[in-house]
Amino acid sequence: MKLTYFFIGTLIAVTVMPHASGYAINSDVVSCRSGPGTTYGIVRTYKKGQNVSITCQTTGPSVNGDSLWDKTSDGCYVADYYVSTGTGNYVTGKCGGGEGSPPSSNSSGYCKAVNQAGLDLISKWEGFVASPAPDPIGLPTVGYGHLCQQKNCAEVKYKFPLTKATAQQLLNDDIPKYSSCLASYLNSRVKLNDNQWAALVSWVFNNGCGNAQSSTLVKRLNDGEDPDTVAEQELPKWRMAGGHVLQGLVNRRADEVRLFKTASSKQAYPSCQ
């Protein structure tokens, strides 16, 4: 039950930034989004062979092993994986930084996966879908909440119909996308154990990276407030879809709060034990 909430991102102003021109799109119908990640809204699409100018680059959720996202002259972001730059490194300046700046990271040692309690929670609330089908708000999903990126979920490497075992493998493949964006939004002063981390990754998985980035929850954690207090107060607010409170979301948030407040000696962020 992956629910996506609409929001408006703030574009970072870039000054005196050289444009890198003439890079061809290498895949059919590539989405250019309002932010660097697949949870952001689609602004426009590019066709295979179409040339784009890149105004700057930044890091975001990895697409097939490439975590760079290119901001085009149209003011939207496309995964660098789909642009024929000839390299996996920067070809122009970093968005908000100087030319050729390396990608920034608050932490490189966080847990990219989540513990079994987190996997069980996500699997429980997403539900098992063997073949691609619309979820309760009409988004095509398969497995345990995998949101299809291509027609008929062609990007999924496992055979349909999925078994619960292959659906679990697909979930394991998907988790690093959400743990990665969460790690990029938190500063290194935040300390989270594996249960706290798993609960937050479940929340991001459900609501999307962009919504997490702009959330009061992340801001309060970065401001140094007590994590248990923040989770208990902020997670239950994420209970609406389509302008209505959904009991399923109320119950999922309650499960996430319980997991978050379950004591553990294993650290998961900013370093993984």
Rank of each mutant, 00 (worst) to 15 (best):
P61E: 15
E126H: 10
S84F: 04
S123N: 09
D80W: 11
N152A: 09
G96Y: 03
E126W: 07
G37R: 02
T72Y: 07
D120P: 14
I25M: 04
S67F: 06
C76A: 08
K71S: 06
Y77W: 15
P102Q: 09
C153A: 06
S123E: 10
P61W: 00
N89W: 10
G49Q: 00
C76V: 13
V43I: 11
V30E: 09
Q149Y: 11
K48R: 12
N26P: 07
N89P: 00
I42T: 15
G22L: 13
T59V: 14
D74L: 13
A113M: 11
G35Y: 07
S131V: 04
C56K: 12
I25S: 02
D74H: 11
V63C: 05
K47F: 13
K151H: 05
G37T: 08
G49Y: 00
A154E: 05
Y81R: 15
G145P: 13
W125P: 04
P136H: 02
E126F: 06
N64C: 12
T39F: 01
G96R: 12
D70M: 08
Q50I: 03
S73N: 04
A113V: 04
V78N: 02
G86A: 03
V129C: 09
S108R: 13
A130D: 06
P136I: 12
V29N: 09
A79M: 03
N152G: 00
Y23A: 12
A113G: 10
A133N: 13
G96K: 10
L147Y: 06
G60D: 09
